[in-house]
């Protein structure tokens, strides 16, 4: 009886705590989502649209540009996200050391990229990576290369520029979450491990990483979605070029919506492709997690 009351109490509190957020999301999320789902079955230009059944899905299946955008996005995702997460984690751990001097300064400096304005840093990146920019001059000065690398005019090298740009901008941002989370680890655990003679890297792998797992998961999902929605850098540095080499899903959706003949039905459908990818990734992640649980 008492147990039942406790359960009901838990239920009431559970809903009560999330209620304000649910009401707001219900208003500002559910209606737009339903609208966009409905739109994704509409064909036509601008305001003159009509129900097109599966016509948009057919168009999707034949869309070579979408395929290119998808593969570019996946390349960015596979290469960039791990590099950034590892870097951010290492910086956070280094800066969490209480004996390190100038910690506050270092933290702030590493955080600077994500507040530096997009307009400023994208024009600077473009000039640094231009044919006669400092990067090429430095590499040629050091005799690493003989001829300038066509950073911004070759699809392959342009991808490298974009990956560097996103890593540069977002590593400090991810570091914040780790710094905050590191405070939640009881320092006595480290003390005990140190006394037991466990080396630093083992302490990092065996204590820090497992303790930070929820936040690492959070930043990984965040970066995944961030990459799938990558827009600012490609729009400002390469405009998706050269030769569609840095066209991303999000830029493609933007082009479909605002730069080409407006066909909102189709651009809505492409948006749902991103949602579908995330759904598939989550299911995969769910199965991996379940298998691991079984074996342990």
């Amino acid at each position: 009886m008492a147990q039942a009351r406790l359960d009901r109490n838990e239920q009431i509190n559970g809903w009560a705590f999330i209620m304000p957020a649910m009401v707001l999301l219900g208003i500002f999320m559910i209606y737009p989502i339903l609208w966009s789902l409905w739109m994704s079955f509409q064909v036509g230009r601008g305001n003159a649209f009509s129900f097109g059944g599966l016509a948009n899905i057919q168009r999707l299946a034949n869309d070579a540009l979408l395929l290119q955008a998808l593969s570019n996005t996946i390349i960015f995702f596979i290469i960039q996200v791990p590099i950034m997460i590892v870097l951010a984690l290492l910086f956070a751990v280094a800066l969490n050391d209480a004996t390190l001097r100038l910690r506050g300064i270092f933290r702030t400096l590493l955080f600077l990229p994500c507040v530096t304005s997009l307009i400023a840093y994208s024009s600077l990146f473009k000039s640094m990576f231009s044919n006669d920019g400092v990067i090429n001059q430095a590499l040629m000065g050091l005799h690493i290369i003989d001829a300038p690398i066509p950073w911004l005019t070759d699809p392959f090298w342009a991808k490298i520029v974009i990956i560097s740009a996103i890593t540069w901008r977002w590593t400090g941002y991810n570091m914040i979450f780790y710094l905050a989370a590191l405070q939640n680890i009881d320092k006595s655990i480290y003390e005990a491990a140190r006394i037991d003679g466990i080396p630093a890297w083992a302490r990092f792998c065996k204590i820090t990483v497992p303790m930070l797992k929820p936040v690492i998961l959070f930043t990984t999902i965040l970066s995944t979605i961030g990459t799938l929605q990558l827009f600012d850098e490609v729009n400002n540095i390469t405009q998706g070029g050269p030769g569609n080499g840095t066209l991303t899903l999000s830029l493609y959706i933007y082009n479909l919506t605002f730069r080409m003949m407006p066909s909102f039905g189709y651009s809505a459908l492409v948006s749902w492709v991103i949602v579908l990818i995330v759904a598939v990734l989550s299911v995969i992640q769910f199965f991996i997690a379940r298998d691991r649980r079984r074996t342990t």
Partner: peptide, 28 residues
């Protein structure tokens, strides 16, 4: 999308075909 290719000495017929294909695909 084809300009870098053409600048590097790519075949113009192929480039025109690629332009035509992308344009037709996008014209819906």
């Amino acid at each position: 999308a084809q300009l870098p290719n053409i600048a590097n000495g790519g075949n113009i017929d192929d480039a025109l075909k690629a332009i035509d294909a992308q344009l037709r695909q996008q014209m819906q």
